[in-house]
Amino acid sequence: MALTYQDGIAILQLIIFPFILVASLFIWKRTGWRVGSKIWRYPFTLSLIRLAGSIATLISINDDTKNVRIAIFVCQLIGIAPLLLAYVGMLRLIDLEKKIPPRPLALVTLMAFVGLILGIVGISTADTTNGYTPGTLPKAAMGLFLAVYVMVILLTVWLFYVHFFSLLRYQKKLFLGIALSAPFLLVRLIYSALGDYTSNQTFSMASLAENNHTSLTAYLCMSVLEEIISMVLAMVFGVSAILESDFVKPIPQVDPEEKPNDV
């Protein structure tokens, strides 16, 4: 069977995301496995999700069942959460002096995870017999993801203002990575929002399943490429930042109320 447009997009992701996965592991190791887990596990997880979604797409060539189709839809949606949280992690790495109160970061992370859960449940329980139509839960998930994006941008601007006169070289590179990625990330979110909140078939996952060329072109240009570009920028500036001579490895936080064990 000849490869389709959608299969070609899946192959593109299979080519690109292993590099992002390796880069995230490299930065994670240099940052420290323990403390870096709150930062670099998200691009690593995103890479695994995109690879799984691409593999499911290729499996559907000869086994286009409901379960395979649901797997493709789930991977499409849940990748947004680790994508957004990757930038929250970069803010953690920039914020050496802990200027950002822990509650806003915890709230952003919680919102992303709640959106992730709502999206998985919403898609897994949806009736995909006649295609996929977003229900209340996926729409709520998308709303949370949009709110997370806004909060990440606001926290980035505020943190840059606070540190403006005392930025180290590695912090400048991480800020630059977030700033350059932000427009591409926004287009990626707009694409998903249009699919969830409008009836325009160009942005519908049901149209993707039908190999509609117009929908697939929009998917490629507004989702896949935007996501790849944003993550490549984040990884390039992330690698460059940790290789700077002034890079400061984060120190694991210790609970002040935690008491050492009696000997």
Rank of each mutant, 00 (worst) to 15 (best):
A71R: 02
R50L: 15
Y132M: 00
K29I: 01
Y149I: 09
A71G: 10
Y87F: 15
I9T: 04
L51Q: 09
R50V: 14
Y132Q: 00
L25T: 06
V121P: 01
S24K: 04
T65G: 07
V68F: 01
D127Q: 04
Y42T: 15
T57A: 11
K66F: 05
T133H: 06
R34P: 06
A81F: 02
P104Q: 05
L46G: 13
T125H: 00
T128P: 00
V121A: 08
Y149Q: 12
D127L: 04
F113V: 10
T109C: 03
D7K: 09
I59D: 02
V121E: 03
P18L: 13
A52R: 09
P43N: 09
A23D: 05
R69F: 15
W28E: 09
M90H: 06
A126L: 12
I94Y: 07
I20Y: 07
G8F: 08
P134I: 12
P101L: 11
I16E: 02
L110C: 09
S47E: 12
I80Q: 05
R34G: 14
L91S: 01
F145M: 11
P102C: 10
L91G: 02
G53R: 04
A52T: 14
G8E: 05
Y132K: 00
L96W: 07
T125Q: 01
I100W: 07
S60H: 10
F19I: 15
A71W: 06
I55V: 15
P102K: 12
Y5R: 04
P104S: 09
F26V: 14
K38S: 11
L85W: 01
I55A: 15
P43W: 12
F26C: 05
G79P: 02
Q13S: 11
K139N: 12
L116R: 00
A23P: 03
G135P: 05
T57H: 08
D63Q: 13
I120N: 00
A141V: 04
N130C: 04
I39P: 01
S124R: 05
L51G: 11
V121L: 08
L83K: 03
K99D: 09
G53S: 14
K98E: 12
L137T: 00
I20M: 08
L96N: 10
L12M: 07
A71Y: 04
I78D: 00
I55D: 07
A86C: 12
P101D: 14
R103K: 14
G89Y: 00
I15M: 08
V88W: 00
I123D: 01
Y5D: 04
Q76C: 02
L77H: 06
T129I: 07
N62Y: 08
F44K: 02
I120V: 08
G79V: 07
L118C: 01
W28K: 08
I49H: 12
V121T: 10
E97Q: 13
Y132S: 00
G32Q: 06
C75L: 08
L96Q: 13
N62S: 14
L107C: 07
R103I: 15
V88S: 05
L91V: 02
G8Y: 08
A86L: 12
A52W: 13
L137F: 08
